[in-house]
Amino acid sequence: MSMSEEFACCTPLAREPLSADQAARVAPMLKALADPVRLRLMSMVMSREGAEACACELLPAFELSQPTISHHLKVLHESGLVERDKRGVWVYYRARPEAIAALGSLFDSALAPA
């Protein structure tokens, strides 16, 4: 599945109901962000220059073990929200702009106040 096909699922909710297949593709991303630690991790990655951060930069912000943070980053990766790149002993995480844009488009609304 190409990137455009992968995120073509995200028609604004106010425009038309999602199909079962579309909902199944979107739900893992929303579920990944529904955890406070993962939401903070995503925010930390996205707010860095280039929307990229080394795991080593993320660990100190939490009172959690390295394996726990790694698990949360793995969930974000498996959901399609971040890409990862191993450089030496560290892993760098980068937000996937197309995934973020697709999620944002879900909530575009024709119902916005005039």
Rank of each mutant, 00 (worst) to 15 (best):
L18I: 04
T68A: 14
Y93S: 06
A34E: 10
L33P: 14
V75S: 09
E78D: 15
R48V: 08
S2W: 07
D108G: 12
L13D: 00
V89S: 14
E49L: 09
H72M: 04
E57L: 08
M1Y: 11
A114I: 06
A20I: 09
G88L: 04
S47V: 08
L106Y: 00
A8M: 01
L33T: 00
A53F: 04
V91W: 10
G88V: 03
E98L: 13
A8P: 00
K74C: 14
H71W: 12
E63T: 11
E98G: 07
A24W: 00
M44K: 15
R84K: 15
S19I: 02
L73A: 06
P113G: 07
R96V: 05
A102N: 12
G50D: 02
A27W: 05
I100P: 05
S47T: 15
C10W: 00
G104W: 04
L39H: 09
M46R: 12
S4P: 13
Y93T: 08
M3R: 12
P12D: 01
S43R: 12
F107S: 06
A101M: 14
Q22M: 05
F7W: 07
E52R: 10
P36N: 03
T68E: 12
T68W: 07
G88Y: 02
R48F: 08
E83A: 10
Q66N: 09
V26K: 00
H77M: 14
P97C: 07
V45R: 15
G88C: 04
L58S: 02
L33N: 02
W90F: 15
L58R: 03
L64K: 12
C56E: 12
M29N: 03
M44R: 09
L106M: 03
H71V: 14
L73Q: 07
V37Q: 01
